[in-house]
């Protein structure tokens, strides 16, 4: 069972590595931001699996921290960049 959990964690980490390409490419800020959101969700999944693998339930608190703050970046992008005249890059 432990080996299976490690495989799942490594798989999810490799997903993050693949997603880095979209962060690099862009093209718009919104593209990069949505990839960051995907990383956040993947990170939460990794934390859950780690919590089961290590048997340490406090890791769930780390996951909730990511969880409740995930929306903050999006709202700040939407509100802070709202009246920006000009480019989307």
């Amino acid at each position: 069972m432990d080996v299976f959990f490690i495989i799942v964690i490594v798989f999810l980490l490799l997903n993050i590595v693949m997603g880095l390409f979209r962060v690099w490419r862009g093209p718009a800020v919104a593209d990069r931001l949505l990839t960051t959101q995907l990383f956040g969700t993947t990170g939460m999944a990794i934390l859950m699996v780690l919590a089961g693998y290590l048997g340490e339930l406090t890791l769930l608190n780390v996951a909730i921290t990511f969880n409740v703050l995930a929306i903050l970046l999006v709202i700040s992008l939407v509100k802070v960049w709202k009246n920006k005249k000009g480019e989307t890059k």
Binding site: A30, L34, Q37, T41, A70, V74, W81
Partner: peptide, 22 residues
């Protein structure tokens, strides 16, 4: 369960907000 519910809420709002912004 709470993590999943919050993520459901946050991700659908995220989707709407980013699309609207773009």
């Amino acid at each position: 369960l709470l993590i999943w519910l919050f993520t459901l809420l946050a991700s659908s709002s995220t989707c709407y907000l980013i699309a609207h912004f773009q």
